[in-house]
Simulated scan of single mutants.
Amino acid sequence: MRSVFNIGVGLIKSRGAHSSAVDPRPRAKMCKELKTKVLHLLPPTSNGPSAQHEGHTDGAEILSCTVRALKEGHVVAVPTDTIYGLACLAQSSAAIRRVYDIKGRSGQKPLAICVGDIQDIYKYCKVQVKEELLGDLLPGPVTLVFERSEILNPDLNPFTPLVGVRIPDHAFMRRLCQMCKEPLALTSANISTHTSTVAVHEFQDLWPSLAVVVDGGPIGDQSRLGSTVIDLSVLGKYRVIRPGCALSATVDVLERKYGLSKDPGED
Rank of each mutant, 00 (worst) to 15 (best):
K37M: 10
E33Q: 11
M173C: 15
H18G: 08
Q178Y: 02
C177G: 03
Q128I: 14
T195Q: 12
A246P: 03
D117N: 09
E202A: 03
A249H: 04
R174I: 15
P24C: 04
V251K: 01
A94G: 09
G10P: 05
W207F: 10
V76Q: 04
V234W: 04
G216W: 07
V163N: 00
E132I: 02
T195V: 14
T57L: 12
H74F: 12
K37I: 04
M30T: 01
A95M: 08
A171E: 14
T36R: 04
M1C: 09
D205S: 10
A112P: 05
R175V: 13
G55I: 05
S14K: 10
A51K: 13
V165R: 02
V38G: 05
G244V: 01
L260I: 00
I12N: 10
G226R: 08
S261R: 10
K262T: 02
V163H: 02
P243Q: 06
Y124T: 02
V9T: 15
I219S: 15
E72K: 15
S92E: 14
V4F: 12
F5N: 14
L184Y: 07
G217F: 11
V240L: 00
S209I: 00
T228W: 03
Q178R: 13
V9R: 12
L176D: 05
L247F: 04
Q222P: 12
C125M: 01
H53K: 13
D169F: 09
G107A: 11
E33W: 06
G16R: 00
D101R: 14
A189D: 03
P243F: 03
R148P: 06
E255F: 00
S261V: 14
L39M: 10
W207S: 05
C177T: 04
V99F: 09
L184Q: 06
D136E: 06
A94K: 14
L133R: 00
Q119Y: 07
V198N: 14
A17G: 15
D252M: 02
E131C: 02
I7L: 15
R224M: 10
S227D: 06
K37H: 07
W207G: 03
A189T: 03
G59I: 06
L39T: 05
I191E: 03
V165S: 00
Q91F: 01
G265S: 10
V127K: 02
G217L: 10
Q128R: 11
L63N: 09
E266V: 05
I230W: 02
V142K: 01
C180S: 07
A87Y: 02
G8S: 15
